[in-house]
Design a binder for these strands. Structure first.
Length: 270
DNA sequence: CACCAGGCTCCGA
DNA sequence: TCGGAGCATGGT
């Protein structure tokens, strides 16, 4: 696993490179500071081993994708080392709602403000962490606010976020998750089309945000967000390749392709 | 000053 | 079903 690529490729918004090679971030109420050299320590810790998806054979998935098209092989090579994190579903949904028509630095800023201590009465969720396996971790000082907390707020309360028109979307999502109309955990098992449709019930959630939530929040590796923003250009850039060809590696393909496109002088211009 | 950002809703063909 | 404007905000 390549720590920098994995944490900064745009699949999550709460990790920073605080100094060269040193990454600090938060997941599920835990805060961690880690370097590439310390990745083996992550494998010893049950929580982080799961979060970084260290038990999945990404090389095998990449090899499978590489066979589909030369350009995809190039993209997979470029993205080698990226793991799809197992983020919390609610945080992922909320994050990708905030990501729409927005760019990464500003998304990070909005999410920072959303998680500010005591902004909505949020508190560290893991008071003690027990064994740390030599890892520099502690309870998160700025945990992600749970849906139950946000569900009680009004759009005016979110004015400080400066997230614009997205505020009403976040609140609708929070209320639906909090009152059970949107049972996120159940979407792990649901057939992909149903899971997508369930997410798109939320005001402000379209196909792209829905698929990103499925992939990054529920680790549905069969979800394929790239289908949305490449759309019909699939045939143009990856002739002969159908979205169904990606199979269980669809999500990974999306991440590879996105990163590759972003790096390669935007060869997929509209 | 335009133009755009890991889109979506709404509206009018 | 499809296309295009508008959307809040901030960076370039």
């Amino acid at each position: 696993m390549d720590l920098r690529k994995t944490l900064l490729c745009g699949q999550c918004f709460r990790w920073r490179e605080v100094s060269p090679g040193v990454f600090t971030g938060t997941a599920a109420g835990r805060e961690l500071t880690v370097t590439q050299a310390e990745v083996p320590l992550l494998a010893a810790d049950p929580f982080w081993r799961n979060y970084f998806d260290l038990e999945t054979d990404y090389a095998a998935l990449a090899k499978q994708l590489a066979k589909l098209h030369p350009r995809l092989r190039e993209a997979a090579n470029y993205g080698r080392g990226i793991h799809i994190l197992r983020q919390e579903p609610w945080e992922a949904l909320c994050s990708f709602i905030l990501s729409q028509n927005n760019h990464i630095p500003r998304i990070q800023g909005i999410i920072d403000r959303l998680c500010e201590p005591n902004a909505w009465g949020t508190q560290p969720t893991v008071p003690t962490l027990g064994s740390t396996y030599g890892l520099r971790q502690r309870a998160a000082q700025r945990p992600f606010p749970p849906p139950e907390v946000l569900a009680e707020l009004q759009v005016e309360d979110l004015a400080g976020l400066r997230c614009g028109f997205r505020a009403k979307y976040v609140l609708d999502a929070a209320r639906r998750v909090a009152d059970g109309r949107l049972p996120l955990e159940e979407l792990r098992e649901a057939p992909l089309p149903q899971a997508r449709a369930a997410l798109m019930q939320v005001f402000g959630v379209g196909p792209k945000v829905a698929d990103c939530t499925l992939l990054y929040g529920l680790h549905r590796m069969d979800a394929f967000p790239v289908d949305v923003w490449i759309g019909r250009a699939m045939e143009r850039w990856f002739p002969g390749v159908q979205p169904t060809d990606f199979g269980a590696a669809a999500g990974l393909a999306q991440q590879y392709i996105f990163d590759y496109i972003r790096s390669s002088d935007k060869f997929l211009t509209k």
